[in-house]
C-alpha cells in the first residue's frame, strides 16, 4: 500500500467536504437574504443548501467509517468439571493445559474421578 496515497485521499475528500459546506452556507445565506429583503421564500436555495450539507455529512461518515473489531478480543472461556460417579459439577475459568476428558483429580463429594467434561465460551452474538 502506498503510504503517500493513503494520506492524499483524505485531503482530497476533505477539500470536497469543505467546498460543499461553503456552498451550503452560501445558498442558505442567499435564501435568508432573499427572505429578509424581498420577503420571498427561495425553495431552490434551501434545497441546495440542505443537499450540500447532506452530501458533506455522508462523505465525512464514509471517510471516518472504521470497524472496531480486529478479532483478537479476549473471550471468557469456561471449563466444566464433572464426576464420573456422582452428580458433582464445578464450573471454573479456563486454565492453560485444560482439555476435554483430562483427569481433574478426585471428587470432593464421593472420591470418584473428576474429568473435564466440556470447555466452551459464552457468546452474546445473536444467530
Amino acid at each position: 500500500m502506498d503510504e503517500r496515497e493513503s494520506r492524499r485521499t483524505p485531503v482530497f475528500f476533505m477539500s470536497i467536504i469543505i467546498f460543499m459546506l461553503i456552498m451550503s452556507l452560501a445558498a442558505l445565506l442567499l435564501a435568508i437574504e432573499a427572505y429578509l429583503v424581498q420577503g420571498k421564500l427561495e425553495i431552490i436555495n434551501i434545497i441546495l443548501s440542505a443537499s450540500a450539507l447532506f452530501l458533506a455529512a455522508y462523505m465525512f461518515i464514509q471517510i471516518r467509517k472504521r470497524s472496531i473489531s480486529l478479532g483478537f478480543e479476549t473471550l471468557k472461556v469456561s471449563t466444566v468439571i464433572r464426576c464420573l460417579k456422582c452428580d458433582y459439577k464445578n464450573v471454573r475459568e479456563f486454565e492453560k493445559g485444560d482439555y476435554i476428558l483430562r483427569d481433574a483429580g478426585p471428587c470432593p463429594k464421593c472420591d470418584g474421578t473428576l474429568i473435564i467434561h466440556s470447555i466452551f465460551r459464552e457468546s452474546k452474538e445473536k444467530d
Binding site: 478479532g71 483478537f72 473471550l75 479456563f94 485444560d98 482439555y99 466440556s118 470447555i119
Partner: peptide, 24 residues
C-alpha cells in the same frame, strides 16, 4: 479473517474449536 484471528488464540491455548463438534 476475523474468524482466523480468533482461531489463533484458541489454537495457541489448545482450546476446543467449533469444528471439533463431531470429534467431541
Amino acid at each position: 479473517s476475523e474468524a482466523f484471528a480468533n482461531a489463533l488464540k484458541a489454537f495457541t491455548l489448545g482450546q476446543p474449536i467449533g469444528d471439533g463438534a463431531g470429534a467431541l
